[in-house]
Simulated assay, not measured.
Amino acid sequence: MLVIRPIEQRDFAILKQISIESGHGFTSLPVNDELLQKKIDHSLTSFASRAGGKGDCLYFFVAEDSDTGEVLGTTALESAVGLTSPFYTYLLGKQVHCSRKLGIHNVVETLTLTNDYTGVSELCTLFLREPARHGMNGRLLSKCRFLFLAEFSELFDRRILAEMRGVSDEGGNSPFWSWLQEHFFSMDFPTVDYLTGIGQKGFIADLMPKYPIYVSLLSKEARAVIGKTHDKTRPALHLLEEEGFSWRGYVDIFDAGPTVECEVHNIRTLRNSRRLTVQIGHPVRAQTHLVSNTRFEGFRALLGEMAINEQKGQAVMTRAVASLLKVEDGDTVRVAEMKRND
Protein backbone atom coordinates (compact mmCIF):
# COMPACT_ATOMS: atom_id res chain seq x y z
CA MET A 1 0.00 0.00 0.00
CA LEU A 2 1.22 3.50 -0.83
CA VAL A 3 1.32 6.00 2.02
CA ILE A 4 1.75 9.72 1.42
CA ARG A 5 4.07 11.51 3.85
CA PRO A 6 6.18 14.71 3.90
CA ILE A 7 9.60 14.36 2.29
CA GLU A 8 12.57 13.76 4.60
CA GLN A 9 16.32 14.21 4.21
CA ARG A 10 16.78 10.46 3.77
CA ASP A 11 14.80 10.72 0.51
CA PHE A 12 17.49 12.70 -1.32
CA ALA A 13 18.96 9.80 -3.30
CA ILE A 14 15.60 8.56 -4.54
CA LEU A 15 14.49 12.13 -5.33
CA LYS A 16 17.50 12.49 -7.58
CA GLN A 17 16.62 9.20 -9.29
CA ILE A 18 13.06 10.42 -9.82
CA SER A 19 14.36 13.67 -11.31
CA ILE A 20 16.30 11.59 -13.85
CA GLU A 21 13.30 9.38 -14.60
CA SER A 22 10.94 12.33 -15.06
CA GLY A 23 12.80 13.49 -18.18
CA HIS A 24 12.71 16.72 -20.18
CA GLY A 25 9.94 19.22 -19.57
CA PHE A 26 9.45 18.31 -15.89
CA THR A 27 10.83 21.65 -14.76
CA SER A 28 10.06 21.30 -11.06
CA LEU A 29 12.57 18.45 -10.64
CA PRO A 30 15.85 19.45 -12.31
CA VAL A 31 18.75 16.99 -12.19
CA ASN A 32 20.80 19.22 -9.93
CA ASP A 33 21.94 18.17 -6.45
CA GLU A 34 21.96 21.69 -5.03
CA LEU A 35 18.46 22.52 -6.21
CA LEU A 36 17.00 19.19 -5.13
CA GLN A 37 18.51 19.71 -1.68
CA LYS A 38 17.00 23.21 -1.58
CA LYS A 39 13.58 21.74 -2.29
CA ILE A 40 13.97 19.29 0.56
CA ASP A 41 15.19 22.08 2.87
CA HIS A 42 12.35 24.37 1.81
CA SER A 43 9.77 21.70 2.58
CA LEU A 44 11.37 20.74 5.90
CA THR A 45 11.36 24.40 6.94
CA SER A 46 7.76 24.89 5.82
CA PHE A 47 6.59 21.93 7.89
CA ALA A 48 8.78 22.71 10.90
CA SER A 49 7.83 26.39 11.23
CA ARG A 50 4.18 26.55 10.30
CA ALA A 51 3.28 29.89 8.75
CA GLY A 52 0.47 31.98 10.16
CA GLY A 53 -0.99 32.34 6.69
CA LYS A 54 -0.08 32.15 3.02
CA GLY A 55 3.62 32.65 2.40
CA ASP A 56 6.57 31.39 0.41
CA CYS A 57 6.14 27.77 1.51
CA LEU A 58 6.58 24.40 -0.18
CA TYR A 59 4.83 21.27 1.07
CA PHE A 60 6.57 18.35 -0.62
CA PHE A 61 5.28 14.79 -0.23
CA VAL A 62 6.47 11.36 -1.29
CA ALA A 63 4.53 8.13 -1.82
CA GLU A 64 6.14 5.29 0.13
CA ASP A 65 5.40 1.58 -0.27
CA SER A 66 4.39 0.47 3.24
CA ASP A 67 5.75 -3.05 2.62
CA THR A 68 9.16 -2.25 1.13
CA GLY A 69 9.80 1.34 2.24
CA GLU A 70 10.54 2.26 -1.39
CA VAL A 71 9.55 5.74 -2.55
CA LEU A 72 7.48 5.43 -5.73
CA GLY A 73 6.24 8.96 -6.38
CA THR A 74 6.26 12.62 -5.52
CA THR A 75 3.63 15.33 -5.22
CA ALA A 76 3.67 18.85 -3.81
CA LEU A 77 1.84 22.07 -3.02
CA GLU A 78 3.36 25.53 -3.29
CA SER A 79 1.52 28.09 -1.19
CA ALA A 80 2.14 31.08 -3.48
CA VAL A 81 4.04 31.40 -6.77
CA GLY A 82 5.97 34.40 -7.96
CA LEU A 83 6.83 35.90 -4.56
CA THR A 84 10.61 35.38 -4.70
CA SER A 85 11.08 35.13 -8.48
CA PRO A 86 8.76 36.05 -11.36
CA PHE A 87 6.18 33.48 -12.47
CA TYR A 88 5.66 33.92 -16.20
CA THR A 89 2.86 32.65 -18.41
CA TYR A 90 1.55 33.47 -21.86
CA LEU A 91 -2.11 34.43 -22.12
CA LEU A 92 -3.81 33.38 -25.34
CA GLY A 93 -6.03 36.30 -26.30
CA LYS A 94 -7.52 38.04 -29.31
CA GLN A 95 -7.12 41.31 -31.15
CA VAL A 96 -9.58 42.64 -33.70
CA HIS A 97 -8.45 44.46 -36.86
CA CYS A 98 -11.47 46.10 -38.39
CA SER A 99 -12.17 48.59 -41.15
CA ARG A 100 -15.81 49.36 -41.91
CA LYS A 101 -14.81 51.42 -44.90
CA LEU A 102 -13.01 48.49 -46.49
CA GLY A 103 -15.41 45.88 -45.15
CA ILE A 104 -12.64 44.01 -43.35
CA HIS A 105 -13.02 42.39 -39.94
CA ASN A 106 -10.20 40.10 -38.81
CA VAL A 107 -9.87 38.46 -35.38
CA VAL A 108 -6.33 37.31 -34.66
CA GLU A 109 -5.01 35.32 -31.72
CA THR A 110 -2.13 36.70 -29.65
CA LEU A 111 0.18 35.49 -26.91
CA THR A 112 0.92 38.08 -24.21
CA LEU A 113 3.60 37.61 -21.54
CA THR A 114 2.05 37.99 -18.06
CA ASN A 115 2.67 37.59 -14.33
CA ASP A 116 -1.06 37.20 -13.69
CA TYR A 117 -0.69 34.20 -11.36
CA THR A 118 1.56 35.93 -8.84
CA GLY A 119 0.44 34.91 -5.33
CA VAL A 120 -1.73 32.02 -6.51
CA SER A 121 -1.13 28.55 -4.98
CA GLU A 122 0.15 25.72 -7.15
CA LEU A 123 -0.16 21.96 -7.46
CA CYS A 124 3.22 20.72 -8.64
CA THR A 125 5.81 17.94 -8.92
CA LEU A 126 3.39 15.06 -9.42
CA PHE A 127 5.33 12.05 -10.67
CA LEU A 128 4.55 8.35 -10.32
CA ARG A 129 7.34 5.91 -11.07
CA GLU A 130 6.78 3.20 -13.66
CA PRO A 131 6.44 0.22 -11.25
CA ALA A 132 3.58 1.98 -9.44
CA ARG A 133 1.54 3.02 -12.47
CA HIS A 134 -1.41 0.76 -11.85
CA GLY A 135 -4.65 0.67 -9.90
CA MET A 136 -5.58 3.89 -8.15
CA ASN A 137 -2.07 5.02 -7.25
CA GLY A 138 -2.17 7.98 -9.63
CA ARG A 139 -5.44 9.14 -8.11
CA LEU A 140 -4.02 8.90 -4.61
CA LEU A 141 -0.97 10.93 -5.57
CA SER A 142 -3.10 13.65 -7.16
CA LYS A 143 -6.03 13.80 -4.76
CA CYS A 144 -4.20 13.51 -1.42
CA ARG A 145 -3.20 17.15 -1.79
CA PHE A 146 -6.85 18.19 -1.62
CA LEU A 147 -7.21 16.70 1.86
CA PHE A 148 -4.19 18.72 2.97
CA LEU A 149 -5.71 21.81 1.36
CA ALA A 150 -9.02 21.21 3.12
CA GLU A 151 -7.37 20.79 6.50
CA PHE A 152 -4.99 23.75 6.24
CA SER A 153 -6.79 26.11 3.85
CA GLU A 154 -5.51 29.22 5.64
CA LEU A 155 -2.04 28.52 4.25
CA PHE A 156 -3.14 28.81 0.62
CA ASP A 157 -4.68 31.25 -1.84
CA ARG A 158 -8.34 31.09 -2.83
CA ARG A 159 -7.18 29.97 -6.31
CA ILE A 160 -4.87 27.14 -7.21
CA LEU A 161 -3.18 26.35 -10.51
CA ALA A 162 -1.38 23.44 -12.12
CA GLU A 163 1.04 23.65 -15.05
CA MET A 164 0.68 20.76 -17.47
CA ARG A 165 3.72 19.60 -19.38
CA GLY A 166 3.48 20.62 -23.02
CA VAL A 167 4.36 18.72 -26.17
CA SER A 168 7.98 17.67 -26.69
CA ASP A 169 9.65 14.63 -28.22
CA GLU A 170 11.86 11.99 -26.59
CA GLY A 171 14.91 14.18 -27.14
CA GLY A 172 13.28 17.08 -25.32
CA ASN A 173 12.59 19.12 -28.45
CA SER A 174 9.53 21.38 -28.23
CA PRO A 175 7.90 22.61 -31.46
CA PHE A 176 6.80 25.79 -29.68
CA TRP A 177 10.22 26.51 -28.26
CA SER A 178 11.87 25.80 -31.61
CA TRP A 179 10.09 28.83 -33.06
CA LEU A 180 11.01 31.05 -30.09
CA GLN A 181 14.59 29.82 -30.23
CA GLU A 182 14.89 30.66 -33.90
CA HIS A 183 13.66 34.23 -33.48
CA PHE A 184 14.60 35.31 -29.95
CA PHE A 185 16.97 32.84 -28.27
CA SER A 186 20.07 30.77 -28.94
CA MET A 187 19.38 27.95 -26.47
CA ASP A 188 17.69 24.62 -27.02
CA PHE A 189 14.67 23.52 -25.01
CA PRO A 190 16.47 21.16 -22.57
CA THR A 191 18.83 24.02 -21.66
CA VAL A 192 16.12 26.60 -20.93
CA ASP A 193 14.07 23.95 -19.14
CA TYR A 194 17.05 23.18 -16.90
CA LEU A 195 17.89 26.84 -16.24
CA THR A 196 14.30 27.53 -15.24
CA GLY A 197 14.26 24.49 -12.97
CA ILE A 198 17.35 25.69 -11.08
CA GLY A 199 15.90 29.18 -10.67
CA GLN A 200 17.99 31.07 -13.24
CA LYS A 201 15.12 32.94 -14.88
CA GLY A 202 16.81 36.26 -15.63
CA PHE A 203 17.16 35.39 -19.30
CA ILE A 204 13.37 35.34 -19.63
CA ALA A 205 13.00 39.02 -18.83
CA ASP A 206 16.06 39.84 -20.94
CA LEU A 207 15.18 37.92 -24.09
CA MET A 208 11.46 37.18 -24.19
CA PRO A 209 9.49 39.42 -26.57
CA LYS A 210 7.78 42.14 -24.52
CA TYR A 211 4.94 42.73 -26.96
CA PRO A 212 2.13 40.34 -27.89
CA ILE A 213 3.05 37.68 -30.42
CA TYR A 214 0.63 37.10 -33.28
CA VAL A 215 -0.10 33.38 -33.30
CA SER A 216 -0.54 33.44 -37.08
CA LEU A 217 3.16 34.31 -37.41
CA LEU A 218 4.26 31.15 -35.62
CA SER A 219 5.23 28.03 -37.52
CA LYS A 220 2.49 25.49 -38.23
CA GLU A 221 4.14 23.09 -35.79
CA ALA A 222 4.26 25.68 -33.00
CA ARG A 223 0.63 26.72 -33.50
CA ALA A 224 -0.50 23.10 -33.35
CA VAL A 225 0.78 22.51 -29.79
CA ILE A 226 -0.52 25.66 -28.02
CA GLY A 227 -2.59 24.50 -25.07
CA LYS A 228 -1.80 20.83 -25.79
CA THR A 229 -0.56 18.37 -23.16
CA HIS A 230 2.29 15.87 -23.32
CA ASP A 231 1.05 12.30 -23.78
CA LYS A 232 2.46 11.25 -20.39
CA THR A 233 0.68 14.14 -18.66
CA ARG A 234 -2.82 13.56 -20.03
CA PRO A 235 -3.91 11.25 -17.19
CA ALA A 236 -2.91 13.92 -14.64
CA LEU A 237 -4.84 16.56 -16.58
CA HIS A 238 -7.90 14.31 -16.74
CA LEU A 239 -7.86 13.86 -12.95
CA LEU A 240 -7.73 17.62 -12.43
CA GLU A 241 -10.55 18.22 -14.89
CA GLU A 242 -12.67 15.76 -12.92
CA GLU A 243 -11.99 17.90 -9.84
CA GLY A 244 -13.23 21.06 -11.54
CA PHE A 245 -10.01 22.50 -12.98
CA SER A 246 -10.27 24.25 -16.32
CA TRP A 247 -8.04 25.98 -18.85
CA ARG A 248 -8.52 29.73 -19.19
CA GLY A 249 -6.05 30.50 -21.92
CA TYR A 250 -2.76 30.57 -19.99
CA VAL A 251 0.11 28.49 -21.37
CA ASP A 252 3.71 27.78 -20.46
CA ILE A 253 6.17 30.17 -22.05
CA PHE A 254 8.52 27.40 -23.19
CA ASP A 255 6.40 24.47 -24.41
CA ALA A 256 2.92 26.12 -24.54
CA GLY A 257 1.41 23.45 -22.26
CA PRO A 258 -1.86 24.55 -20.60
CA THR A 259 -2.06 25.98 -17.09
CA VAL A 260 -5.34 24.91 -15.47
CA GLU A 261 -6.89 26.48 -12.38
CA CYS A 262 -9.76 26.20 -9.92
CA GLU A 263 -11.20 28.03 -6.95
CA VAL A 264 -10.06 25.98 -3.96
CA HIS A 265 -13.55 25.73 -2.46
CA ASN A 266 -14.84 24.27 -5.75
CA ILE A 267 -12.42 21.31 -5.86
CA ARG A 268 -14.65 18.24 -5.80
CA THR A 269 -12.64 16.02 -3.46
CA LEU A 270 -12.04 18.90 -1.05
CA ARG A 271 -15.72 19.84 -1.11
CA ASN A 272 -16.86 16.25 -0.51
CA SER A 273 -14.34 15.46 2.22
CA ARG A 274 -15.35 15.48 5.88
CA ARG A 275 -13.92 14.94 9.32
CA LEU A 276 -14.76 11.70 11.13
CA THR A 277 -13.68 10.02 14.35
CA VAL A 278 -11.53 6.89 14.20
CA GLN A 279 -13.01 3.60 15.36
CA ILE A 280 -10.54 0.72 15.14
CA GLY A 281 -12.26 -2.58 14.51
CA HIS A 282 -13.52 -4.81 11.72
CA PRO A 283 -15.30 -2.68 9.09
CA VAL A 284 -18.46 -4.24 7.70
CA ARG A 285 -19.31 -3.54 4.05
CA ALA A 286 -16.09 -1.61 3.73
CA GLN A 287 -15.46 0.64 0.74
CA THR A 288 -12.37 2.35 -0.62
CA HIS A 289 -11.82 5.82 0.81
CA LEU A 290 -9.19 8.48 0.47
CA VAL A 291 -8.24 9.26 4.05
CA SER A 292 -5.68 11.35 5.89
CA ASN A 293 -4.91 12.18 9.47
CA THR A 294 -5.32 15.83 10.47
CA ARG A 295 -1.74 16.46 11.54
CA PHE A 296 0.44 19.07 9.92
CA GLU A 297 4.06 18.00 10.19
CA GLY A 298 3.07 14.34 10.62
CA PHE A 299 0.59 14.30 7.72
CA ARG A 300 -0.25 10.87 6.32
CA ALA A 301 -2.71 9.89 3.59
CA LEU A 302 -3.64 6.67 1.81
CA LEU A 303 -6.37 4.77 0.01
CA GLY A 304 -7.87 2.27 2.44
CA GLU A 305 -10.86 0.06 2.98
CA MET A 306 -13.13 1.31 5.75
CA ALA A 307 -16.77 1.61 6.72
CA ILE A 308 -18.59 4.79 7.70
CA ASN A 309 -20.89 4.81 10.74
CA GLU A 310 -23.10 7.76 9.84
CA GLN A 311 -24.97 7.84 13.15
CA LYS A 312 -21.80 8.11 15.21
CA GLY A 313 -19.73 10.03 12.67
CA GLN A 314 -17.05 7.34 12.71
CA ALA A 315 -14.59 5.92 10.22
CA VAL A 316 -14.26 2.23 11.09
CA MET A 317 -10.87 0.89 10.02
CA THR A 318 -8.52 -1.97 10.77
CA ARG A 319 -5.61 -1.62 13.14
CA ALA A 320 -3.24 -1.93 10.15
CA VAL A 321 -4.77 1.05 8.33
CA ALA A 322 -4.85 3.11 11.54
CA SER A 323 -1.19 2.33 12.15
CA LEU A 324 -0.19 3.56 8.69
CA LEU A 325 -2.14 6.77 9.30
CA LYS A 326 -0.58 7.07 12.79
CA VAL A 327 -3.98 7.40 14.46
CA GLU A 328 -5.71 5.76 17.41
CA ASP A 329 -9.29 5.30 18.58
CA GLY A 330 -10.97 8.67 18.97
CA ASP A 331 -8.54 10.58 16.74
CA THR A 332 -9.85 12.65 13.85
CA VAL A 333 -9.34 11.81 10.17
CA ARG A 334 -10.44 13.49 6.97
CA VAL A 335 -12.22 11.16 4.55
CA ALA A 336 -13.43 11.29 0.95
CA GLU A 337 -15.15 8.33 -0.72
CA MET A 338 -13.34 6.99 -3.76
CA LYS A 339 -14.68 4.97 -6.63
CA ARG A 340 -12.87 3.31 -9.49
CA ASN A 341 -14.18 5.90 -11.93
CA ASP A 342 -13.43 8.90 -9.65
Rank of each mutant, 00 (worst) to 15 (best):
K210C: 08
Y211D: 15
Y214T: 05
Y214K: 07
V215K: 04
V215E: 04
L217M: 11
L217N: 11
A222T: 04
R223N: 09
G227I: 07
G227R: 01
K228T: 12
K232L: 15
K232D: 01
R234Q: 14
A236T: 01
L239S: 12
L240P: 02
E242K: 13
E243Q: 13
E243H: 08
E243R: 10
G244D: 13
S246W: 06
W247T: 02
R248G: 15
G249R: 10
V251D: 03
D252T: 05
I253M: 09
F254N: 11
A256I: 12
A256L: 06
G257C: 04
P258D: 04
P258S: 09
P258N: 14
T259W: 03
C262H: 01
C262R: 13
H265N: 11
N266S: 14
I267L: 03
I267G: 00
L270R: 08
N272S: 11
S273I: 10
R274D: 12
L276V: 11
V278L: 00
Q279L: 13
I280D: 11
I280A: 13
I280M: 06
I280G: 14
G281P: 07
G281R: 10
H282I: 11
P283E: 13
R285N: 15
T288F: 00
T288L: 00
V291C: 13
V291Y: 13
V291P: 09
S292F: 06
S292Q: 11
S292A: 14
N293T: 06
N293A: 01
N293I: 12
F296N: 02
E297S: 13
G298S: 06
F299T: 02
F299D: 04
R300N: 09
A301C: 14
L302T: 12
L303E: 13
L303H: 12
G304Q: 07
I308M: 07
I308F: 01
N309F: 07
G313R: 10
Q314C: 03
A320F: 07
A320G: 07
A320L: 06
V321S: 10
V321E: 07
A322D: 10
A322Y: 04
A322H: 05
S323V: 05
K326W: 05
V327R: 01
E328K: 09
D329T: 11
D329F: 06
D331P: 00
V333F: 00
V333G: 05
R334M: 12
V335C: 03
E337P: 09
K339D: 05
R340A: 04
